[in-house]
Write a protein that binds this DNA or RNA. Structure first.
Lengths: 333, 333
DNA sequence: CAGAATAATGTTAGCGCTGTCATTTACGAT
DNA sequence: ATCGTAAATGACAGCGCTAACATTATTCTG
């Protein structure tokens, strides 16, 4: 059997109706008598007809696609956002075209350009850091745009996420309130991850407000990882004065820090408190649940899709959607 | 400015050539004088022309797309495979359409059907577990298919991965050789994750061969997670006779087991050895690096794409590509 | 410099579908 | 019966691009 896919015409012929009628049945659009609908669906099943979406998009100018640009897949955070996106997409007939930018705005620009070639209904991006060319393309092509994770700047279209500055600030307030005074900071490459820097700034602001400042800090030049957290904390403690608490740029780093303490025989919280960011599941399964801030990654992805696709339905037309965060008390700070 | 995207015609008009010539320049196909090429590219830049891929696919029957079906995004393993896929795709002009099956063959079937509507060049799926309807669709539409992770069955087209049965078997042999005799097993839901079961079977075969058998085993009904590993090991140790070593269904579970030992004051390896599967980065950063088997997830994804797209180039036409695995000695077994 | 090859460009005809605007049919209300 | 309205269906053009086949310049060969 030469695999030649049946088209609308074949179905129409078999059902004894016109092509447009089949098209209407398929798309569930316009009035169709239950009799014809039955005959058409029977023909569709018999032939194993699958509509050609390229043709459909061409004819109707716009594809049931959402372009998704993620900065990285190495960290579980972005797959979780993607999971939220997929979950929301599952009940629609939209599909996701996924690209990975590796935190590089120029790579992002190339991906945006090739995604736009499909005339997607919307693009989901991360952060506010785009090249001018990217912004221009986005303006020209009439496409919805969601910028995820962060809400600390003015979005192109909509932003869904949390204020990292405030999260950092609140982390600081929280720890100060709990009596910590001698703060250390362990971070990772923040040229790539701008949000980590925003949290850092918020933290410093909270400290300053209380007449405090970081006693010691160290930043790994690499991406965040357990390894980097472990080694950077080790380095920090080598030549640092005594600290009460170390704030990490995220949970991965903090978990690494926790492991270092285990190895070095440092009693976590009693001797040195640890604080992370993200609220990853694994952090809560450590022998002492990690004290951290829960960012709602799944919710961010899910909300973005709902906002992008359901715009008309809701009366809520905010351009900035705050998915919030919660401080997770844990047992490490 | 009403955002009306320029088409081939606009570019052709501006450059003073025919549409097909512009098309040839864009696709870098056929002979073009350097003079026209220059004029055309200038016009393209000036107009900000972006080719409409829906039209292209329609005209040429087939889109530069790869459909990717992943069972889950909750576990870092599949994002890592996706990372490999994206890495290989980056140097091509193919893009990935991603869907998540949640380990359900019926969901998979729906996704396959909607992916095929785009006439992708290839589909990347996980495992060999598909509905009859899925197999039929795949046979009808002439599309390359890669089944990833596992090579323990006959693929539809090509399979890329490792023998989980052998990996389980070798784990058993390895541990027996190191003197372990009283084996425990801690697993997760293997109705969904068939590969975990294959490893289990391999392990049992190795034990049987040595005249041994599992002394105790316990399986969580849930998906694998640190939490599940922790709790299931705890449960296992409650009513089990004394064990030398516990083999976990994967690293997530094993790391949970490690945490349980920390909490319960069980000295890992001296009192109870632990063994995982996957070789996740975080496992190697534990205070004692986890003894495990490294599956090469990134390589699997990357290889699959290379094989699917580069078929003609290489003389290597194996249908089953073994990306292998390595036992990671670690310090927990 | 004829004749053949090759390079460079163009013409034509769709790909499979949907938007738009008819047209036909069914069914009450008058 | 007669009209009006709504329900159901259809004809046709065209979305933007490319395969396949011309056609026209250019270069090479002996």
């Amino acid at each position: 059997m030469p695999p030649v896919a049946p088209t609308l015409k074949d179905v129409a012929l078999m059902a004894g109706v016109s092509e447009i009628t089949v098209s209407r049945v398929v798309r569930n659009k316009g009035p169709i008598s239950s009799d014809t609908r039955l005959r058409v669906t029977a023909a569709i099943d018999a032939l194993g007809y699958v509509p050609n979406r390229a043709a459909g998009s061409l004819a109707s100018a716009g594809a049931p696609l959402i372009g998704v640009l993620l900065p990285s897949l190495s960290n579980i955070v972005f797959p979780e956002v993607l999971r939220g996106i997929q979950a929301a997409l599952a009940s629609t007939n939209y599909q996701s075209l996924v690209g990975v930018t590796e935190y590089d705005p120029v790579v992002e620009q190339h991906i945006v350009s090739s995604l736009l070639a499909w005339k997607p209904a919307a693009l989901i991006m991360t952060g506010f850091d785009h090249t001018d060319a990217t912004r221009m393309m986005l303006a020209k092509h009439d496409v919805r745009v969601a910028e995820l994770m962060d809400i600390d700047a003015e979005p192109i279209d909509i932003a869904v996420g949390l204020s990292h500055r405030r999260a950092g600030y609140d982390s600081g307030r929280h720890l100060i309130q709990r009596g910590y005074r001698r703060f250390g900071y362990v971070g990772h490459d923040w040229d790539a991850d701008r949000r980590a820097r925003r949290r850092y700034n918020g933290l410093c602001a909270a400290l300053a407000e209380a007449g405090l400042s970081l006693t010691a800090e160290s930043r790994s030049p690499h991406a965040s990882s357990t390894r980097a957290g472990k080694e950077t904390l080790k380095a920090l403690l080598l030549d640092a004065p005594k600290l009460d608490v170390v704030v990490f740029s995220n949970d991965d780093m903090a978990i690494g820090g926790f492991f270092h303490c285990l190895e070095a025989g440092i009693s976590v919280k009693e001797e040195l408190a640890l604080f992370g960011f993200n609220g990853l599941a694994i952090g809560q399964d450590l022998p002492k649940p990690l004290s951290t801030v829960r960012s709602n990654r799944f919710l961010i992805g899910k909300t973005a899709v709902e906002r992008l696709l359901g715009a008309a339905e809701t009366s809520d037309h905010r351009r900035v959607i705050d998915t919030g965060y919660e401080i997770v008390e844990g047992a490490t700070a």
